[in-house]
Design a protein around this nucleic acid. Structure first.
Lengths: 342, 342
DNA sequence: GCGGATATGATTGACGTACCTCATTTTGCC
DNA sequence: GGCAAAATGAGGTACGTCAATCATATCCGC
């Protein structure tokens, strides 16, 4: 005998199909005692609702929104592409995904986006934005409307988001540090760090992890104060250039944030292309090229494709009230060398 | 208007539902001209068959077999667990997965397993076994029966398998080499290599990749002849022990195969636990512990969970005649340090 | 034990596809 | 032009679930 159906439940519980349906779909008008009888039959027979039949019957489509910053960076671009790819693939699974680019630093614009999401009756939202009280509250409000919410890249730890899709940035910083330290092989020297801005939580966390490992494991290396590139190539090039010109014994640079083109430019202009140990974040067109040419030694990557698919899967699972495979949804800190470039 | 249905196709093509059905399901008895008319309408309207409705109607279940070696190793154990986990998750997607453990070195037993698979009317097979002409032919025969076939871990490059789920072992060897070399930081010394057996293609490939990078990039390091551990802890411990005792200036070991427990035992017994650079393959309970304690420095991993899920997804896509997301099915060469342990 | 509210039953028609039967039309061939 | 074979049409039932209607049964307070 195959999987039990609603008919089997009805028979087993001694009620009619209509009542089973009312119970399964949480409709009113059933006595508690009867509800219990049905629930009992469900667990006794091990009934699981056939989701595809259910979705077919109710003509269901899942509507998700990916809320991304409107700033541009190669990583964001890659993420956007990855979401589009996932969108195409999930079309067959009744999912409609829309990408909204919003000035996430602007609370008014951000809230307006959420208003539109709420008004449109969206089933789930993946939001990438830095943590603010306003956003936290807004996520709470979405949850009261039964909208699934996942935090993307940057966690919203004190909010009611259902899930975080991204990496542990402290661990990423530690990973960058240990690679830098071991590649240095005992030599003494200085290490520079470039970030977008120390206002961003991810950057701070990476720096914390980096410093901790450096302090514990590599006393031969001196980590210098953070340079801020403000997401801008020219700016990054300038600060890194000044840094290189005024420090003679630099042996490595950790680029925890964007602006990588400025960094490589500064290095190449000084003929340091393959002299320094350079660890950077996120595999993009540019960092891939720099890895291949040897300007960058290691890329610490959070896989954009994996992130996009994972977010979509988690949102769908949340809507369906189904468990996810934890290990599949764990975003790994990928270490990419020229030799294991995908 | 929503997605087009078979009714729309029938109307658009000016034929009846029955004919559309015959065309879509490749049934006989339709003139070529009519087939073309229907196909035309399909592409004109952008019709895609609703797979869940179709599967519902035909009460379809996908039956897959994972054919794994009956030898035991921690990696195989992890893979087995991963397949079971995937099985549970895919239960909801109408997939029944069975794991068969077979003595893959024994052609008779292997062929018997294939016979059973063929007789049982299985929809797809994921096979992990070394490449032989017998196996190649058998895969070809399966393909004539419309059974989906993927090669697992070890490719069957000249067979008609639909897909290979695993890593590029030459690249893995290169990756191991560059990490060993850079961790050595210019020091001179000897590097030992441990494998199961040089009969296995994966081992040979890893060794090739390792040697090439070492030869090109690290003239300060001397790679010594391969030690064969034959998948056995005691054996591995003995050969590694002898190696360590008779070579004074060993600074690193690359463990390309199984038997890791023997390796770590040999190292620890000589107080070399954290003295040597040790690069090993595959994240298991044991290698995780060794990584945490510092005996092993790097694990090159092929993610068992990813492999199991990917194989199942590819088999299903093959049965459905659907494309896979290439980037999702690319098994990455993971570099695992203590700092980025998942 | 009556009346009104509340629970439950019985039934039906979707959803999009598969697959079957039987009738009818068209085709190819001599 | 006639005939068999092939192609097509028309229609129905099924898959498991949802959602609705309407009739009937059971409950509760008085």
């Amino acid at each position: 005998m195959g999987k039990p159906t609603v008919h089997d439940i009805a028979r087993e519980a001694g009620v009619s199909l209509a009542t089973v349906d009312r119970v399964l779909n949480d409709r009113a008008g059933v006595r508690e005692k009867t509800v219990a009888r049905v629930r009992d039959a469900v667990s006794r027979l091990g009934y699981v609702r056939d989701l595809s039949a259910a979705n077919l019957a109710r003509q269901r489509r899942y509507r998700f929104v990916f809320l991304l910053p409107d700033t541009t960076s190669q990583f964001l671009h890659a993420l956007h592409d990855a979401v589009l790819e996932a969108t195409a693939a999930l079309q067959l699974d009744r999912c409609d995904i829309e990408v909204m680019h919003v000035s996430v630093g602007d609370p008014v614009a951000l809230m307006a986006a959420f208003d539109r999401i709420e008004a449109a009756g969206i089933d789930g939202v993946a939001v990438m934005a830095s943590e603010t009280p306003v956003l936290r509250d807004r996520i709470g409000r979405l949850k009261t409307q039964d909208v699934a919410v996942v935090a993307l890249i940057t966690d919203q730890p004190n909010s009611e988001r259902d899930h975080f899709v991204g990496i542990d940035n402290v661990a990423a910083g530690r990973t960058a540090a240990v690679l830098t330290g071991r590649f240095a092989g005992g030599r003494e020297g200085k290490i520079g760090i470039v970030v977008n801005s120390m206002m961003a939580r991810d950057m701070v966390e990476r720096r914390i992890g980096f410093d901790r490992v450096m302090g514990e494991g590599f006393p031969n290396l001196t980590v210098l104060p953070t340079m801020e590139g403000r997401d801008d190539h020219a700016m990054t090039e300038r600060v890194v250039g000044q840094f290189l010109d005024s420090n003679s014994d630099v042996i490595g640079i950790y680029c925890a944030g964007a602006g990588m083109r400025g960094l490589t430019k500064a290095l190449e202009d000084r003929g340091l292309g393959d002299k320094l140990i350079v660890v950077a974040h996120d595999l993009t067109q540019h960092s891939r090229a720099a890895l291949e040419s040897g300007v960058i030694d290691v890329v610490i990557n959070q896989n954009a494709g994996h992130i996009a698919r994972s977010a979509a899967r988690v949102l769908k699972a949340q809507c369906d009230g189904v468990d996810v495979i934890a290990s599949q949804e764990k975003i790994r800190i990928e270490i990419v060398l020229r030799e294991n470039l995908p």
